[in-house]
Design a protein around this nucleic acid. Structure first.
Lengths: 153, 153
DNA sequence: CTGAGAGTTGAAGTCAACTTCATGTCAAGG
DNA sequence: CCTTGACATGAAGTTGACTTCAACTCTCAG
């Protein structure tokens, strides 16, 4: 180990599961702050671990880093965030998850009604309707995450 | 209108809701085939519309174009696919949607148990667990689609 | 004091699914 | 025949979230 109660990138990477490159990236985006040694190396305070836990949780719920950034901006500056602060932020995810689940259930129910008719009509089918969710995402729009996709048996 | 029972790119784009550039892209990937006029312009058969409906539906369900491609490869070659062919393919999406819904519900229930404790522990928290779904996606991995994200009030 | 392993940087690459652009060609109504 | 609007092509750009690379520089156990 090194000396003080601060953590090196490697240690934070190890404990958080984020790659060092991701930590540097988050720092560039302003999601993370790190002190520096005389030689210019990063030294993290222990509370970045909770911050990173929040970031990962938010990502798991579907937030973009931009949204995460906005959420983190609501933390009180000056003092170290308390558990209550984190709880307040993450409570909002409930509604989001509910909406996501509802959207998928709607899609599934639509699928159920479509299977058997084999229509796949661009005008009438609930599943292939151009106006639907995944259509207008622009470049890079993906409907569900690769991890969930891969999990299919 | 032009002449025969074939469709121009513009017409297909209009009817399918896909941009002409997307149609050309799909053709490069082998998802679509088009005849050519003497002058080199594309002329589509009417059945591409159903094919495109399938593609859109698959994308809505969360398939990548690569998966769509694999699915389309199972269609009988030689004859025009029947409704039954399309139905057979889309029936598989049910399981996928069920799994996606289950994953989100698991996440939500984990969130419920986490809210109130404010722990967000990297080791213990169900939501911020590094081993979880969104962790190993590599570059470009996104959990839920921008459209669903944007829909949040 | 030294050497190996860990850390630093900016620039560029990756991936998916398209879009945009520049430049040039077709098709067909008048 | 001609003009106008649609179409064609390859190359390059976009977006988000990172990773990879090359070329150095620190740190600290021994």
């Amino acid at each position: 180990m090194h000396s003080a109660d601060t953590l090196t990138v490697g240690e934070v990477a190890q404990r958080s599961g984020f790659a060092p490159s991701a930590l540097r990236y988050y720092e560039r985006l302003g999601l993370l702050v790190a002190a520096r040694t005389a030689g210019g190396q990063r030294r993290y305070e222990r509370n970045v671990l909770r911050r990173l836990a929040f970031i990962r949780a938010a990502r798991n719920v579907g937030l973009s880093l931009e949204e995460v950034s906005a959420a983190l901006a609501e933390l009180p500056d000056g003092r170290t965030p308390t558990k209550a602060d984190w709880t307040r932020l993450s409570r909002r995810w409930r509604r989001r998850l509910d909406a996501q689940i509802a959207a998928l259930e709607k899609l599934r129910d639509g699928l159920d009604s479509c299977i058997g008719c084999g229509c796949l009509s661009l005008r009438r089918c609930a599943i292939s309707n151009p106006g639907d969710s995944a259509a207008a995402g622009g470049p890079g729009a993906v409907f569900l995450p690769p991890p969930l996709r891969a999990a299919q048996p």
